[in-house]
Design a protein around this nucleic acid. Structure first.
Lengths: 168, 168
DNA sequence: ATTAACTTTCAAAATATTTTGAAAATTCGG
DNA sequence: CCGAATTTTCAAAATATTTTGAAAGTTAAT
């Protein structure tokens, strides 16, 4: 397979992959393109390569910057902005985990705390099932939260190495 | 907070949560409702409680059954089908992980295997960046795959217990 | 075999999300 | 400050996804 075709396949399936995880296609594709670009590229380059509009490109680049997966780069003597993506995949994953944890897991845990305190007699089967379900989700969520914290602060080799040994 | 309100909040935020992870709202809400229902309920019950149509309810119940998160239950002497959800959250998570791994991670790893074999001189910066990126994603993906395999086969206490100890 | 209860299907409608592109805003060299 | 280059905004359009509901299909009791 030629590089051009391989790149296209990578971008296209990274895009499809993203859509299964609540990330829009353009954003995932822009990220994919930046991941496999050896040097910083401009918004124009992205628009052309992916055949998407200026507005779309701009909006999703900014979103990727919000997620701290992409950085603006100013090249000396150039007026245009260039963009580059973090290439260390472990860092990329940690960053995504960190953001999603903050945006989704933590608010969910707070909500579950509140819901657990529902009024009513726990001998009532309906109350009991509700509280039991909420509690068990919360407990698992708490453990996941701690594990993810450890992961966010860990080096890949330490974290995955220890994990792999433990699982042997 | 009253049980009724608490249930509604749970269902609604479980639905919103799902949409961030590529799961449609009705499916997530039906799952939430079943999780907090002490006894099996019918399609009619679900339609009424969530105020969604017959077709939508039916389609999403079947999808939940495909994911093995929900089971049909036949009550003796009853014509109607009843539905119930697995309540053990660790089992639920394992099942979701198992399915998504099969549907998404494994195909991605196969694709990356192919893409890694791209033609071209690795001294070419573009080829090098591409192959390096693809390889590092693949390697991390492989480790994740193994970890998830272990998780799928593990008991909650063993898996999370060991993990928590390791992370101390 | 009939029929009423129940389940499934799926084309069309509704809704939600993404994308476009032209206009406005900003930036920077001269 | 001017004006060209560049970036950002956002309402409207396009697209994608979800939902509806009526009709078709299935089931099981009699």
């Amino acid at each position: 397979m030629k590089l051009t075709e391989a790149k296209q396949q990578f971008i296209s399936s990274w895009g499809a992959f993203g859509t299964h995880w609540g990330i829009n296609r353009s954003m995932a594709q822009i990220h994919a393109l930046l991941l496999i670009s050896s040097d910083p590229i401009t918004q124009e380059d992205i628009m052309e390569e992916l055949d998407i509009s200026r507005g779309n490109t701009n909006m999703n680049i900014r979103e990727l910057i919000n997620w701290r997966l992409v950085e603006r780069v100013l090249l000396p003597g150039e007026r245009k902005e260039y963009f580059t993506a973090e290439k260390d995949i472990w860092k990329v994953i940690r960053q995504i985990v960190k953001e999603r944890k903050k945006r989704e897991l933590e608010p969910m845990l707070h909500l579950l705390d509140k819901l657990e305190e529902v009024e009513g007699d726990r001998r009532d089967k309906n109350v009991k099932t509700f509280v039991d379900t909420v509690s068990s989700i919360k407990n698992l969520g708490r453990k996941a939260d701690k594990t993810l914290d450890a992961m966010i602060n860990a080096e890949e080799n330490w974290f995955l190495g220890t994990l792999m040994k433990m699982l042997k």
